[in-house]
């Protein structure tokens, strides 16, 4: 009898281990470490364009953050991301120096280019674990274009660009009010201590009428500023 009693919790732990996601307290999980913000570093991505006009002729992207954060009226402190697009011979094709992000215990949020965004895009919802899902709405405005709804999930862990066990996170944007069937889908891979190592963005329609277009960027190098 005593043996049975002692083994019960062991069996229970084994049962938990066999579960996934939130039902397994010992499952792999990750938090802010998947998106470290280091203004001293420049992330260089190679670009594969698949029919988009924005990335036409873009060969590489450079991402880096400003050293100073901006405190907005609500009290949030935002990081400012600079995004530079180069062609194959090093000419700047276009750039942004006002993409705002915040990161806290709850997630990684994109404010786009507006400091007054009430409903930032929740690209990551911490902690991450395989099977996690979340969703979001943009309130009275759009996240971007006409997309006002997102659903996201942690798809799994994969080896990408030489980084093992990257977190594969899919974020899909829909039009909630005027549903034409278009979906803007981000699939991003994150590695703890590194950040985003790959990004795949595609637009497609759920009816399959149009050919999907998109862009894939892969982390090439990280250089010191």
């Amino acid at each position: 009898m005593k043996i049975k009693i002692i083994f019960f919790p062991i069996i229970f732990v084994l049962f938990l281990l066999s579960c996934s996601g939130p039902y397994n307290p010992f499952s792999d999980s990750a938090g802010k470490e998947v998106m470290p913000v280091d203004p001293k570093k420049i992330y260089v991505y190679s670009v594969f364009n698949n029919g988009t006009s924005t990335y036409y002729n873009v060969a590489k992207l450079e991402y880096f953050y400003n050293e100073d954060q901006i405190e907005i009226d609500t009290g949030d402190k935002l990081w400012v991301l600079n995004k530079y697009a180069y062609d194959s011979i090093g000419n700047i094709l276009w750039y942004y120096d006002n993409i705002y992000y915040s990161i806290n215990n709850f997630g990684f949020f994109s404010y786009g280019t507006s400091l007054f965004t009430e409903y930032p895009i929740k690209f990551l919802d911490f902690p991450l674990y395989v099977g996690k899902k979340w969703e979001g709405h943009s309130g009275n405005y759009y996240f971007f274009s006409s997309y006002d709804t997102l659903v996201a999930s942690v798809e799994g862990r994969e080896d990408v660009n030489g980084y093992d066990g990257c977190w594969k996170v899919k974020v899909k944007f829909f039009e909630r009010e005027f549903y034409y069937g278009y979906v803007y889908e981000f699939i991003r891979w994150y590695k703890e201590g590194i950040g985003m190592v790959k990004d795949s963005e595609y637009i497609y329609d759920v009816y399959g009428t149009y050919t999907p277009v998109g862009v894939v960027i892969n982390l090439d190098t990280i250089i010191e500023r």
Binding site: P22, Y23, P25, N105, G107, F126, P127
Partner: peptide, 9 residues
């Protein structure tokens, strides 16, 4: 909500 508040088993 989310974040690191205990969530799960």
């Amino acid at each position: 909500g989310g974040g690191y508040s205990p969530k799960g088993v």
